[in-house]
Structure formats: structure tokens, C-alpha cells
Design a protein around this nucleic acid. Sequence first.
DNA 1: GCCAACGTTGGC
DNA 2: GCCAACGTTGGC
Length: 140
Amino acid sequence: MFWLVKTDPDTYSWDNLVRDGKTIWDGVRNFQARNYIEKMKVGDKLFVYHSQNDKAIMGIAEVIRESFPDPTTDEPSWLAVEVIPLKKLVRPVTLTQLKEHSEFSSFPLIRQSRLSVMPVEKEEFRKICLLGNIQPDEFL
DNA sequence: GCCAACGTTGGC
DNA sequence: GCCAACGTTGGC
């Protein structure tokens, strides 16, 4: 499956992920987002989106460890996954661009701006890769 | 169980 | 800096 995860680049950016080589995607404190984390499987691809000033999809990451208790809290109900960076988009795909393409009008990123983890349809994934000037085939 | 008050997130 | 959207908390 395909997903999109948001991050505030001032807190943890795509470049931080590349620097670290892998990271635990933790800190999700919303039930809807948690339920999506729970469904992630090893090998699933994720778009990493920068909120705040960038407001753009920066790159593609991959799940390497399925959901486990979030180490940043003692509450057992919160979950995290572990991810590695796969590929940076040649051109980040901005929120503005997505809004300009009517086929993304139902995209949760646009409809539900505060949701931090959301599913992405395969066809949406493909189109966003093309907008980002990268070849989608190796990720499908 | 309802709702007002409050806090947080994220776009503009 | 402001505000809309949404989630949470607490009084009743």
C-alpha cells in the first residue's frame, strides 16, 4: 500500500531522514492516524510531506518495520513504524500543485488538512511521482 | 451525554 | 499573526 506522512521540517525533515538512514516514525497522537500506522506493512511506500513553509511532498520512504508501541510514550495505544528513505523527488510536489489538479480534490491532504497519516491510492501515487519528475515503476 | 472552553495544527 | 478545523477536557 501507499501512504503519506506529514512532518514539520523544523522538527524532522526529509534531509534528516536521509542523514539518519532510517528513523522511527513516532509521535502520532491522533486515533485516525494511528489506525493507518497500524495497517502499514513492510515494503509499503510513503510520501514524506513537509508542512509549514514548504508545504510539499519531498520524497519517498519505505516501511522496514511494522507497527510497534511508540517508544516516546508509556501509553500502549500509540504506535510507530520504522522507515528508510528511498528517493527524493526531483521536483517537490507542492500543495498548490495538487490543488491545481482536480483529480486530487478528494485527497485527504486537501480535504482534511490536519490529518498527519493518510492512505494514497496507487494511481495517485503514480501521478504524484510523475509530477515530481521521477519514474514511478520501480515503486509500484 | 451535551456543549462550552480551550489547545493544537496547519494553511494563508 | 490570524483563523478555520478539529480534538480534548471538564462542568453540568
